[in-house]
């Protein structure tokens, strides 16, 4: 009973203090449970719920509180250190890395983390549990009579040759708004010059800018967009409800983002958080089941996969000067 009261008070207090916009909030497991785990995440509840349920199946005496917010808000909540979250899950690997680098994250070492591949962890603080490619989502109707592009070059060629078909029907992330879009853009610009040529072509066709992948997918499905560039592949692959769209992982190189989990320094139950994180990582890296870390990479042989490295390199594009310069250059290219 005391636990329940305490939890209630905690929730009320949290709700009052919360200086960020909660997109979704749900709870799992018995309210009177011995252990309470609070997760702050950027991942939609529907997508992550199976993971929580698989944990509860083995640990029924746990109450899990799951809050969804935008990656910027998630970062802000951890920086404020007033939110008692045990686990922070985010698709913004650069922000997660910055949190860890700047000392807001505690180390977690276990048998599970010891077995992780080198690329899937950084400094025993940031742990990757998905690999999600940046994909090109194409409306099959819009490409009727054209070859399906397999690479960025193919896409550039198609757009240049058929400007009337694509004008106003090309979508991509607005890197000034979307952290994920910014991450994809900066990493691609680092890897290849093609990115800038593509951006200029899209700019010349009056590209439409989006905040989120799901909207881009919806617009392609509805035929409003002919092509959406740098859509989060994992979202696209899950939209089995939509017909007439084609998801392409560019064969020249496919940027792969890692969704990651960290345990904040302020976690009230770091031990429980560690156990849950281990469960997540085990599910993801055991190469089976719903959370297989390779499930979004498609049949690609891996040669063209360009995984974004966890590490301080990610801090470079978070630098204020660098960000300003990049966004300026990008704006010049896309808004003509």
């Amino acid at each position: 009973m005391r636990k329940l009261v305490f939890s209630l008070v905690l929730i009320l207090v949290t709700a009052r203090v919360a200086a960020f916009e909660i997109e979704d909030h749900s709870t799992f497991g018995p309210k009177q449970a011995q252990e309470v785990l609070r997760i702050l995440s950027t991942t939609d509840t529907a997508i992550f719920a199976p993971m929580i349920q698989s944990y509860l199946a083995n640990n029924p005496d746990t109450f899990i509180d799951y809050t969804v917010a935008s990656s910027t808000d998630v970062m802000g909540a951890v920086l404020q250190q007033s939110q008692p979250f045990d686990l922070v899950i985010s698709s913004a690997m650069d922000l997660q890395t910055k949190l860890a680098n700047d000392g807001y994250v505690q180390k977690h070492v276990s048998g599970v983390t010891g077995a992780l591949p080198v690329w899937a962890k950084w400094n025993d603080m940031v742990f990757a549990f998905t690999q999600e490619p940046a994909a090109i989502v194409i409306s099959e109707a819009a490409f009727q009579g054209l070859d399906m592009p397999r690479s960025r070059e193919d896409l550039i060629t198609a757009m240049r040759r058929n400007p009337e078909r694509f004008r106003g029907r090309v979508g991509t992330y607005d890197v000034r708004q979307s952290g994920l879009g910014y991450l994809f853009a900066t990493q691609e610009s680092r890897v290849s010059e093609t990115y800038w040529r593509l951006t200029e072509v899209m700019g010349s066709l009056g590209a439409r800018l989006y905040c989120c992948s799901s909207q881009m997918i919806d617009d392609v499905a509805s035929g409003e967009l002919a092509v959406a560039y740098n859509v989060l592949g994992s979202y696209a692959f899950q939209r089995s409800d939509l017909d007439g769209i084609r998801i392409v992982l560019p064969s020249d190189f496919t940027t792969v983002m890692l969704r990651s989990v960290v345990v904040p320094k302020t976690a009230p139950s770091p031990e429980l958080a560690g156990r849950f994180a281990d469960h997540m990582l085990e599910q993801a890296h055991s190469n089976s089941g719903n959370f297989d870390i390779r499930r979004w990479l498609g049949p690609s042989d891996g040669a063209a996969l360009s995984r974004i490295n966890l590490g301080p390199g990610l801090l470079v594009y978070l630098d204020a000067l660098k960000r300003r310069a990049f966004q300026k250059e990008w704006t010049n290219a896309i808004l003509q």
Binding site: A100, N101, G103, K121, W122, N123, D124, R190, N309, G311, P312, G313, L315, V316, Y317, D319, L321, K322, A325
Partner: peptide, 25 residues
């Protein structure tokens, strides 16, 4: 004064072992 932080400036510090990295200009 514009400083265009090179990507390698920070990533090279993490090349062998995971290191936390800080900088100031």
């Amino acid at each position: 004064v514009i400083v265009d932080l090179p990507y390698s400036a920070l990533s090279m510090l993490d090349s062998v072992t995971d290191e936390r990295v800080f900088y100031v200009v």
